[in-house]
Design a binder for these strands. Structure first.
Lengths: 365, 365
DNA sequence: TCGTTGAATGCACACGTGTGCACAACGAAT
DNA sequence: ATTCGTTGTGCACACGTGTGCATTCAACGA
């Protein structure tokens, strides 16, 4: 209440005078006052420094006092003020999570794992949504205001200029399944190239003739790489004229988009593709439903479908989607591992890390 | 670098001496130094206070200086240090989001809206995952360490003891679709009672005879209320023996759980229910697939299904689920509205708010 | 010319913590 | 007994901001 202007130096010998309101020094009498380290120090008869060191587990503190101080702290209900701590150390234990909405199923699964990993490492996720790509720069700068210890970008591509800001402040950045190569940042991708090849090989082995790749209009980075790898694996057979290939486009990057695309492209019985590789699982699911229920096609006989990601819905009884699997757990684990090491001061060159994928054969191809 | 111990008071008349490294006062020469309000003040020839007031838009500052300071701030790349600010004001602009994993589809949609609303109100969401209910208390206390401005609980039930901690610190709490009534906290629910009644009425009007309610093992608060309301609406007809009712239980709260339950309960042709009201949409979807594809039942003729929530998947072509709709947007909007007003100092009694629901009739009932 | 008023800005704190350095206590070795 | 090393604590800063209060300054009326 009163401006307790008791600076550290005063409680050397004259203890009673430093606390003007010594009357209410009973356990938790003053109920509307948040207990600080000074309170604990006072109660334990030690200095604030000692309290601080006890809470941090400084080995220079004798075990006896540590125990005593900690028990008193618990009794008083003291919790370190992380804001003050962050201010002092010029670094918080927050990790920025840049994403855009919670609609992409795989991204949700990844975020789920990521949040778990972050928490388990003693950090806290600070989510920031950039639905408008133009706000990307502002948002990432804004994140810096919170003294974040690191940032994970799962959507959008930060400009190089942003990168230098982060570099200057020594705040590590990890781009996950993103295009941009950012100076001083790690870029982690699943093996999109291998994924495309696996799909191509499988279709070829199955004797499919009219192959297609279904991408989102505009195309995402990951989608483009998958498609290019797919078609380049097809190249030899294309040259010899044994098979045909075309690229299909759907208007929205979700189930409905895939559904609409299915109605549009699979309707013509003769020229329609008999094998479709989809850039993302949930698009594949839409396509699948259109084929099976709207057009009455047999899957995989009339048309084969392979997706990408292996989201949970792909495993469900109704779909049993054949797909290229990437592991959100591995992705998340590697992400925070890199962050953790960089935060710890380890200096790693900016690398481009690639995680394995494999083809999970179910019932749609 | 050197301990610039230039306190405020010193730069009254002797300006040059306060900055020991006056040599590199060119725009942004010293690259590894984060620019503070003091730098801006120095560059603009005003005091730190003025800079602070300019950034905050204090009306007492003349428009001329405000513009000048702001342009200089922009030029120098100055951004307010929110940690320091939070420390001073003893309140951050973070809002804690207590959840458990990202698996429940409706909760994801709600969080999506919620994050948007929070951001739009100038706050930032700090996510915290409590998969282990035993960690609930510790987690919510931990949140307090970040000086959060408010908290939204979407999973688990905080103990009254936690409530008093928040009450003491004047940090508002909103429980969404939760059971517990917490002192000083708002509780927002959708109209579970009406939802159950709507489902019951619809089944009765359709002439269904063997009704059932599919709940999760153990039962969530919302689920229980929905089921109880459903069966109590059925009571008169049950008494007259025209219909029968039973409660079904599935082992996991997801699609697979519903699928398994479908296989288990719908297999017996005669006694199997001909109308099932499900506690949650994604369970309903599992049940639906089991009925249609595994057991070859006709929906809604052989068995009618009504879900709850109206998640996006329910609207998809493959399902067309009839369900009780609640609006994640409204829920989110009301949540941050309450938070916002409470943070602003408005003192509202702890209320129990109920949002409307309605029945969306599609093709499964 | 002087006092008064209002507007604009500067001063001096306070917020709660971490940490380098100094210092005290104390046992051991000479 | 004196010196030295070791172990445990305390002191005094610094982190970057917001804000009550004092102060300055110009304008204005008497």
């Amino acid at each position: 209440m009163g401006d307790q202007r008791a600076k550290d130096g005063k409680n050397t010998a004259s203890d009673a005078r430093t606390k003007p309101d010594a009357t209410m020094s009973g356990a938790d009498a003053m109920s509307s006052h948040v207990v600080t380290s000074a309170d604990v120090a006072h109660a334990a008869g030690v200095s604030r420094s000692t309290v601080s060191r006890c809470m941090a587990g400084d080995p220079r503190i004798s075990e006896a006092t540590r125990e005593r101080v900690q028990s008193i702290a618990a009794e008083l209900g003291y919790h370190v003020n992380k804001i003050a701590s962050s201010m002092n150390r010029r670094k918080s234990d927050l990790i920025g999570l840049v994403t855009s909405g919670l609609s992409d199923p795989f991204r949700i699964e990844f975020l789920d794992c990521l949040i778990g990993e972050i928490q388990q490492s003693g950090y806290r996720p600070l989510v920031i949504d950039v639905s408008d790509p133009a706000q990307m720069g502002r948002s990432m700068l804004n994140l810096l205001q919170y003294q974040v210890a690191g940032v994970v970008v799962t959507s959008g591509s930060p400009s190089p200029e942003i990168g230098t800001h982060y570099l200057r402040r020594n705040v590590p950045v990890v781009l996950v399944n993103r295009a941009g190569r950012l100076e001083g940042a790690d870029v982690i991708n699943c093996d999109n190239v291998l994924g495309g090849q696996l799909a191509a090989d499988y279709f070829l082995a199955a004797g499919k003739k009219r192959l297609a790749f279904l991408n989102v209009r505009g195309g995402t980075y990951s989608g483009n790489v998958r498609g290019e790898s797919f078609v380049s694996r097809l190249a030899p057979h294309l040259a010899s004229g044994q098979i045909s290939f075309r690229t299909l486009v759907c208007d929205s990057a979700d189930y409905d988009g895939g559904f609409a695309a299915g109605l549009k492209y699979l309707v013509e019985r003769e020229n329609a593709p008999d094998a479709v590789f989809c850039a993302k699982d949930h698009i594949a699911l839409g396509l699948l439903d259109a084929a099976r229920f709207e057009l009455g096609l047999k899957v995989p006989d009339d048309v084969s479908v392979i997706g990408f990601d292996d989201i949970v819905a792909a495993r469900q009884g109704a779909y049993q989607l054949t797909t290229v699997r990437q592991s959100p757990q591995s992705l998340a684990r590697m992400t925070v591992d890199r962050l953790h090491r960089r935060i710890g001061g380890e200096s790693l060159g900016d690398e481009r890390l690639i995680l394995p994928v494999d083809l999970v054969v179910r019932k749609t191809a």
